[in-house]
Design a protein around this nucleic acid. Sequence first.
DNA 1: AATATTGGAAAGTGATACTCTCCAAAAGTC
DNA 2: GACTTTTGGAGAGTATCACTTTCCAATATT
Lengths: 220, 220
Amino acid sequence: MWIAELSRQSDVPVATIKYYLREGLLPAGEAVGATRARYGETHVRRLRLIRALVEAGGLSLARVRNVLAEVDEESLEMHDVLGAAHGALIPTDLPATDESRRRVDDLIAERGWEVHSGSPDRALLANALDALEKVGYHLDDDLLKTYASAATQVADAEVAALPADDRQRTVEATVLVTALGGPVLLALRRLAQQSASARRYGMPRRPACDVGEGGVRSTG
Amino acid sequence: MWIAELSRQSDVPVATIKYYLREGLLPAGEAVGATRARYGETHVRRLRLIRALVEAGGLSLARVRNVLAEVDEESLEMHDVLGAAHGALIPTDLPATDESRRRVDDLIAERGWEVHSGSPDRALLANALDALEKVGYHLDDDLLKTYASAATQVADAEVAALPADDRQRTVEATVLVTALGGPVLLALRRLAQQSASARRYGMPRRPACDVGEGGVRSTG
DNA sequence: AATATTGGAAAGTGATACTCTCCAAAAGTC
DNA sequence: GACTTTTGGAGAGTATCACTTTCCAATATT
């Protein structure tokens, strides 16, 4: 198919596809003459993957590029895929105090988790704990353990649910579950928070949002 | 204190403080004459809160502004604080298919959660489920229920841990827990995923990151 | 031959989050 | 009282991001 058809099938404007091609997010099509290139199903899939990561996962194009590089890395063993995906997905080199780092290390040891000593998530977590301390709030051990326990349940189920058939598909699923599972989990957590808050403080008298009668308008 | 001292105590450049003042993120100081204003502890606290939300919570200044407006809304009853904070924290008006919306509604009903019918989290969640469908992956009911169960545990603990003494402090804690608890939970989930992956696929031979021998360099 | 489409490159756009420069008024110093 | 420094405030400038627009000459299609 030509670029116009690719645009139709993926619902991404031609100009944006060209931009992604230039930025190396999308592999070039098969050149047919000097001013023509043919695209295939892989391009449609790749475009949909990009849009999902950007729109629902909230990733920047720079991160998407990192992630796609890992997806395409044929040499990756399955036991390295997840670490590679995480490395591509999250920021690195965050500052954190030694105290918070030690707290994170202790938690990991206590849980018996097998993670690289250099995993950026350690620093990310320590950094978040520091940020709370800086504003005068301490995340106590009980709550931290509750987080860890919930995280374990979710992660075990997610890893168990990963398809094991085709390598390419497994890697893609790994990336998608990590990137889109986050928003899903956080949205559910907020819904549960609202429910818990309603139980603690009594029922709200009315919806907080200011839509008129008739409920929520549909968009698009 | 003058602006220079405020800058020192909050570790935010004077130019940035002036910018926040202009943008209405920080209330003006008490004017003393035409070219002088006095700032207090509340300004230091407010600045630290802003930086925590931006740096650790990953919020845009526009969202921070929404959140602060809720923090300052004295008329808010406690049972409305959480909904207001969520509304300020997340995007609204996301498109979602009726099918995913129904799935979300069913889950909420099944869990017996008390949430507004207009909560933006419903649409956000449905939208994420749609995004996964669009790339050919279905989040099955088992996994969704695992997410919901983990979310419930976390949310209950979080709401129970909210301080109940001072109203201002409670509202601030609500915002902080919601905004910074997210990154914490997601980081722990990724660490747990790595561990689960290591168990499923066998131990990695070596850290995936390319630091030389001697382990991780410390930064800053 | 006339029209349309393509790939590719360059420049333009709008949003975000600062950062810099300038200013006159005021405060501190000698 | 002259001189230096600091202040609040405003405006313009900067860098990054994610496109979008405009242009082009080389094809394809009619």
